[in-house]
Amino acid sequence: MTRDPVRVTLRVNGRPETGWAEPRTTLADFLRQELGLTGTHVGCEQGVCGACTVVLDGAAVRSCLVFAVQADGCAVETVEGLAGEGAPGREAVHPLQTAFREASAVQCGFCTPGFLMTALVALRERDDWDRAALRERLGGNLCRCTGYQTVVDAVLAAAPEVRALEGEGGRR
């Protein structure tokens, strides 16, 4: 039993990462402040906006609604892990990232990492989404800039390539 910081080890984007967390530290704050992975954004701390969405042991979750200590030993995928390995500037860009750019699905970019991680899991679940069902599937992520249409376009466009990539076991 403790309220002091404890060591937390995660497998983040395929690599072990260790840091210290008070029990009250959320996974979102741990990723951002302790591990310096600031691509995961915090927009409400209530699990409502979806900006902090990461993939925890295969499931898309709100990292603001998980304490870091709860995730100890788990595998976490964040936006930073989407692109594959490569020399600086030559990383293999993930098909979702490409599709978001091609479809003009990014404006301020604050919600984007959360959408990417939600979309990644949605496309792992199935790759035959119709627009209405996909809109509902993405309904837990808020965007204030795009009006969502191009985000839906992007995810649909990326589906075949993501499926192919995941078939290879992904880039984790």
Partner: peptide
């Protein structure tokens, strides 16, 4: 119930 990301936990 809420959204899939909430139901996941």
């Amino acid at each position: 119930v809420a959204h899939p990301e909430i139901r996941a936990r």
